[in-house]
Nucleic acid binder design. Structure first.
Lengths: 341, 341
DNA sequence: GGCCATAATGACACCGGTATCATGAGCGAG
DNA sequence: CTCGCTCATGATACCGGTGTCATTATGGCC
C-alpha cells in the first residue's frame, strides 16, 4: 500500500542505503543523487515508517509518563510541557496510569516499560512514594526523572518547585496581613512536597515568634473534598484560624467553599492561600491568592534532562529546583479586629 | 542486552516460530513444548519487543488523539477514557497537538499520522471545524471518530452528548424557577455544539412563549475570560438577565465571578448554569448547577468504536448520542421579586 | 602516466519479530 | 504392513528500515 524505501530506491535508480542516506540527511550524498531521490520521494508520497527506523536503529525514542490513577488537570499541564519537548526531539510519550498501592501494578509498569522498549520514565509525584517501584527501577538501572524529590532515592534526578520557600513566602504574606492563627491543610503526609511545604510554614511562624498550634494543622490528600472537610473542622474550632493555607489550589477552593457554606466572608473573615496556580485558582470567587509553580516548565525541564542527559548517561547535577512566585489575588486580606468577626 | 525470541527458542530447543506460537497463545503447540518455551521465557526474563511485533504483523495498533492547542482539563478527562479502552485493547495513544488555524499544521498532522503509521484518529472538538483537515482525512480514507458531529462531514463517525436536549433541560430548569430573562454565553459559533446548545435554549424559550432577546445572547470561546467579560456586559444591561446559561462550566465560573465582582448575589440575584460538569463545577462557590456530560464515557466509547469497528471497517451506525443529566447544585434559585433585587 | 587519498555508492547482514508452506511424526483404517 | 490423514514443528522469506564494509569513480600530486 504505502510506498517503502525500496520503492523509492528503485524509482530513483539507487540502492536502499543511498535513499536512506538522503532521508537522514547524511552529507556524503552527491547533490544530483539527492535530487533524484527527493524527486522519487515526492512522486511516491513516501513517508518513512518510524517503527521500522526505530527497530533497525536500536533506539525506540519512547519515554513513559507514569501517573498514579487518572490524568488530573495538574498532570495534564505537566504533560503539555513534556510533550512539547519530546515532540521537538522526536520522542514519543507513552502514558502509564497505575494504582500505586497495588503491588501487581508495579510489575505491570516494569513490563510495559520493557514491552514498549521505553528509554526512560518521568515519574509523577505519588509514584515515587513507592519504595518497591523505585527499588525495581534502580536495580534495573532504568533512567528516570522524578517530579519533586523523594527521600527514598538519594542521588536520583528530580525537578521540583521550591516548595519550602514558596510556602514560607505565603505564610509571611499572611503574617504581614496580621494573621496569627493560620490553619494548614497538608497533602499526603508521606510525600516530600507535603513535608517541605509544612516546613516552610513552620519556619515562617518561628521567625514571627508564633508557636505552632498542631490543632491548626490537618492532613489531606490533595482532593477537593479533603479541603472542604478539614476547613469545616478548622472553622468549627473554638478559636478558629483567620487564615488557611492549603498545600494545593484544589483543597484551597474547598476551604473557600467551606467558608461560603457558613457565610464566613472570604477574605473579610477568612483568608485562604493555595499552592500551584492551576487554572482553577483564578476561576473561583474570590480569585485565589496562591504560590505559582511553573508547572509547564517543570514538565519541559524534566523531559529535557531525561532525553539529553539521563538517557545518554551524561553525568550532571540533576537536582533542579525552580523558584515559585506568590500571586496575590483576592482571597487574602488584612485580619479584622475581633469584634468585626 | 535484552533476550530476544531467538534466545528463547535456542534455550528451549525449538524454532523461533514455535516460540512465537507460544507467546501468541496459538493452540497448535504441544503441551510439553509449551512448557519448555515458557520455562525458557521465565529463565531469560524475556519480554517481546512490541515494535518488532507490530512491524512484522503489519498493524501498528497506534491511534492518535488530535487536540487543538494544549491539553485542557476537559480533554485530559476524555483522554482518560480513551486510554483505558486503548490500553485494554493493546493500542497506543499518541497525542497530537496542533494550532488548528495554521494550515501548515494540518500537513503536519497528516505527516505524523503516516510517519507513526497510525490506524485511526480521535478528533477533539475544535479540530473538525477545519474543512481542510476533514477533507484530507476523507480523501485518504483515514479512519477517524469525531467528538461531537460536524456539519461539514455527513456520514462521519461521532460520539457526542445530547447537547440540544441538555441545554433545553437546563433552560427549563431556569424557566420553572421563574426566570424570564435568561442570558446565554455561547461557545465558538462555528462549532456544532455551540449551535446545538443555543438551539436547545431557544426551543425551551419558545415553548414557554418567551421571545428570544438577541441582546441576551453573547458569543464566547469556552475560556474563562470570555465568560467573565460577557457576563459583565450582560449585568450592565439596562434590564439585566436574572439568569445566565453558559455553554461550558469554565465561562459559567466566569459569570459567577462577574457577579461576585459587583456584589450581585448568586443565586439570590443571579442564577448561573454551566455545561459539562467538569471538576471545577463543584469546586466553586456556590457549586455550579450544570448539565453533566459523561466525558470519560464519551472518550471510552470513541476509542471502542474506533478500534472495534472503524479500523476493521465494519459498517454500523457510528453516530452515538449519549444522554446528559442536569445536576442541580447551588448556583440556581427562584427568581426574586423586583424590589428585592 | 601512475599512485593514492577521498568521496560516493551498493551488497548484504541485521534489528526482532510474524507468515507461509513444507516436512516429519504419529496413528487409524484397509 | 502400508496408505493417507492430522497434528506439531521448522526452514525460510519477509516487514521496512539501518549499519558495516567493500567497491567504484574521481581528482590531486609527484
Amino acid at each position: 500500500m504505502a510506498a517503502t524505501l525500496s520503492d523509492v530506491a528503485k524509482r530513483a535508480g539507487v540502492s536502499k542505503k543511498t535513499a536512506s542516506r538522503v532521508i537522514n540527511n547524511e552529507d556524503t550524498v552527491a547533490a544530483a543523487t539527492r535530487r533524484k531521490v527527493l524527486a522519487a520521494i515526492e512522486e511516491l508520497g513516501y513517508v518513512p515508517n518510524e517503527w521500522a527506523q526505530r527497530l533497525a536503529s536500536g533506539n525506540s525514542r519512547i519515554v513513559g509518563y507514569l501517573i498514579g490513577d487518572y490524568l488530573s488537570p495538574y498532570s495534564a499541564h505537566v504533560l503539555n510541557g513534556l510533550l512539547d519537548v519530546a515532540d521537538a526531539a522526536g520522542h514519543h510519550v507513552s502514558i502509564l496510569r497505575i494504582d500505586i498501592d497495588d503491588p501487581q501494578q508495579i510489575e505491570r509498569v516494569i513490563t510495559m516499560a520493557r514491552l514498549r522498549r521505553m528509554e526512560g520514565i518521568v515519574l509523577a509525584p505519588p509514584c515515587h512514594s513507592s519504595p518497591r517501584l523505585m527499588g525495581a527501577l534502580q536495580e534495573m538501572a532504568f533512567p528516570f526523572v522524578q517530579h519533586s524529590p523523594s527521600d527514598r532515592c538519594s542521588g536520583c534526578a528530580w525537578v521540583s518547585a521550591a516548595d519550602e520557600q514558596g510556602s514560607y513566602d505565603a505564610a509571611w504574606h499572611l503574617l504581614r496581613l496580621g494573621h496569627r492563627r493560620i490553619g494548614f491543610i497538608q497533602g499526603p503526609v508521606d510525600l516530600y512536597v507535603s513535608r517541605a511545604r509544612l516546613a516552610g510554614y513552620k519556619r515562617a511562624l518561628k521567625e514571627a515568634d508564633i508557636a505552632v498550634d498542631e490543632s491548626l494543622i490537618k492532613p489531606g490528600d490533595w482532593g477537593f473534598e479533603s479541603g472542604l472537610e478539614y476547613a469545616r473542622e478548622l472553622l468549627s474550632l473554638p478559636e478558629p484560624p483567620t487564615a488557611i493555607m492549603a498545600n494545593n489550589d484544589v483543597p484551597a477552593a474547598g476551604a473557600i467553599q467551606a467558608a461560603w457554606e457558613r457565610g464566613v466572608n472570604c477574605p473579610g473573615q477568612l483568608s485562604v492561600v493555595g499552592f500551584d496556580d492551576v487554572p482553577l485558582a483564578k476561576q473561583i470567587a474570590p480569585p485565589l491568592t496562591t504560590v505559582r509553580q511553573p508547572i509547564y516548565d517543570i514538565g519541559a525541564t524534566m523531559m529535557s534532562i531525561l532525553i539529553e542527559e539521563i538517557i545518554p548517561g551524561i553525568k550532571s547535577n540533576h537536582a533542579i529546583e525552580v523558584p515559585t512566585e506568590l500571586v496575590i489575588r483576592h482571597s487574602t486580606g488584612a485580619v479584622r479586629n475581633q469584634q468585626d468577626a
